[in-house]
Computed example of a mutant assay.
Amino acid sequence: MYQTILLAVDVNDLPESGHVAEAAVRMAREEGATLHVVNVIPGSGMAMVGSFLGPEQANAIKTEARDKLTAWAKEAIPEYLLGKLKVTQGTIYHEIIKAAQELSAEVIVVGAHRPALKDYLVGPNAARVVRHAPQTVLVVR
């Protein structure tokens, strides 16, 4: 049914992503699908903050995130299932949906963080992906 699956993870919270990755790997294995992985570095917000950090710092952050994601993926995802690893920066839910579109993913797998009272059941980024993505979205708790 699915040929391409996108798994969204946070490299700063990889231990929490383990059970989400297990669900995505299981789905990819059962479907015979390729599993792509995306990590989104949150945007710096105000332009003033971004200009203060400078391009060297932004590149260093992205390189570190890519290295962490690559090392984690080698351990968490069988090589025969693994597609592309993507590190991007911006608004988290928007970048996840954009990556899914670019990769022609039929399903997006995201984790739900521990909810605060205001976002009961699903975290704010997962909820936005669910609401705005044209693909099927699997939220793993």
Results as ranks from 00 to 15, higher is better:
11 V>W: 09
131 R>T: 07
41 I>M: 12
59 N>Y: 02
87 V>T: 11
51 S>N: 13
88 T>W: 06
115 P>C: 07
39 N>I: 15
114 R>M: 10
107 V>A: 01
3 Q>P: 04
135 Q>E: 06
2 Y>H: 08
14 L>D: 11
75 E>K: 15
21 A>K: 00
128 R>M: 14
42 P>G: 04
120 Y>F: 15
35 L>K: 01
48 M>S: 09
16 E>N: 14
38 V>D: 13
28 A>Q: 04
20 V>I: 15
97 I>S: 13
11 V>Q: 04
120 Y>H: 12
67 D>Q: 13
3 Q>Y: 08
131 R>C: 13
57 Q>F: 08
112 A>G: 11
27 M>N: 01
104 S>R: 10
107 V>N: 01
34 T>H: 06
112 A>N: 04
125 N>W: 05
59 N>E: 11
61 I>M: 12
47 A>T: 03
110 V>N: 05
32 G>A: 01
10 D>I: 08
41 I>D: 03
116 A>E: 10
6 L>F: 03
136 T>K: 04
25 V>E: 00
136 T>Y: 08
90 G>I: 00
122 V>K: 01
68 K>P: 05
2 Y>F: 06
42 P>K: 01
40 V>R: 06
67 D>L: 11
43 G>C: 10
44 S>I: 07
5 I>S: 01
41 I>R: 14
1 M>P: 07
43 G>E: 10
20 V>T: 11
26 R>H: 09
49 V>W: 00
18 G>L: 14
136 T>G: 07
120 Y>W: 13
138 L>D: 00
66 R>G: 09
77 I>T: 10
66 R>D: 14
85 L>A: 11
20 V>A: 09
89 Q>E: 05
59 N>F: 02
122 V>P: 00
